[in-house]
């Protein structure tokens, strides 16, 4: 394995973690408003899977989207500016936390209606196939989306038309504050649902970036060969609440502590030092450099001006 690439995974996960920790802090301080869903704990999934994509591949995701956007290489300054609603934001303040877009990186959004991104993912995959682009669509969804009608319509169509889509289910066990055992007729092992649509599927450890990366690579090879979609269920856990407004009344703090023992960043850090790929000094250096990047981006976002009021009416339609 290319060691520098593994170090990059560590660095990227750390960037996501520190970005989100600061986002939480800025939310409490009132710099960020609205609904804000932190990705803390789930970093291995975005970083591991997105590391396997090429530039021409599409990403479409749900509202817990900061991590996916950062992992795609969208400038953290522009993401943070969007969270603060500023003119340098990815949508110049019109989207907000749940609606991050960067079409230049084929990052087709943050979508805030549960399951709403799935039909659109089918369209992106359809376009790739129609134009013989051989690009694939990495579509993230949460465990809550599985109970939406749009999920089942999309699974059926993607399989029927052999669309080049990797469905990556981030199963963090809770749809907002309700446990999957209370909402899924089939209980755990959601990935098995893909069988009924003849979509190959697999359950993986979403807290292990190397496992996520490996499973994604294998899936993408299959998809690029024209065999149609693949479904991955990445088991994971969000260390913070559903959103910043979460009372956390639905789970015991001991459960959170248990999962934190499985922290994907600490896991990779241990692996890297055990394998003598990096030493403590290098780890410290990476942490310092990530911290400084995050502080720069906060500074940048705070200094970015509010959008002009004239922009309110722009981009409802073309040229209006």
């Amino acid at each position: 394995m290319d060691q520098s690439k593994t170090i990059k995974l560590y660095q990227d996960m750390l960037l996501l973690r520190r970005f989100e920790e600061e986002t939480g802090r800025l939310y409490m301080e009132g710099d960020i408003r609205g609904f804000c869903h932190l990705y803390i704990g789930e970093e291995a999934i975005a970083v591991g899977s997105i590391s396997c994509l090429s530039e021409k591949d599409y990403i479409i995701t749900h509202y817990r989207d900061h991590g996916h956007a950062l992992a795609r290489g969208i400038n953290p300054k522009n993401i943070m500016s969007e969270l603060m609603g500023k003119s340098d934001g990815t949508s110049a303040g019109k989207g907000g936390s749940m609606h991050i877009f960067d079409v230049s990186k084929r990052f087709m959004g943050g979508h805030a209606i549960v399951g709403g991104q799935l039909p659109i993912a089918c369209g992106l995959g359809f376009a790739s196939k129609y134009q013989e682009e051989n690009s694939i669509v990495l579509c993230f969804l949460g465990d809550g989306a599985v109970n939406e009608g749009e999920f089942h319509e999309s699974m059926n169509l993607a399989s029927l038309w052999k669309l080049p889509i990797l469905f990556c289910l981030e199963n963090n066990l809770y749809g907002m504050g309700t446990h999957v055992n209370k909402t899924r007729s089939s209980g755990k092992d959601i990935y098995k649902i893909a069988d009924s649509y003849k979509i190959p599927s697999m359950q993986i450890d979403g807290m292990d970036v190397l496992e996520v990366q490996k499973a994604t690579q294998q899936s993408i090879e299959k998809i690029r060969s024209g065999e149609g979609p693949v479904f991955l269920e990445a088991m994971c856990y969000r260390f913070r609440g559903h959103s910043m407004a979460d009372p956390s009344s639905y789970r015991k703090s001991q459960e959170v502590v248990e999962w934190q023992k499985n922290d994907p960043i600490i896991k990779l850090e241990k692996f890297l030092s055990n394998q003598k790929i990096i030493d403590q000094q290098k780890i410290l250096k990476i942490k310092e450099s990530v911290d400084s990047e995050i502080f720069d981006c906060i500074e940048f976002a705070k200094n970015s001006p509010d959008p002009k009021i004239e922009s309110l009416l722009e981009n409802v339609y073309q040229n209006e």
Binding site: Y58, I60, M108, G116, L118, P119, I120, A121, C122, G123, L124, G125, F126, A127, S128, Y130, Q131, G149, E150, E153, S154, N156, L157, L160
Partner: peptide, 26 residues
């Protein structure tokens, strides 16, 4: 059949596929 496409009775994904395809340049 590449240009004239029969779909399942699934209005959400029919329209969503149209939206995604349009967003991707079709």
């Amino acid at each position: 059949p590449k240009r004239i496409i029969d779909t399942p009775i699934s209005e959400s994904v029919i329209l969503g596929t149209g939206i995604g395809a349009a967003a991707a340049g079709l």
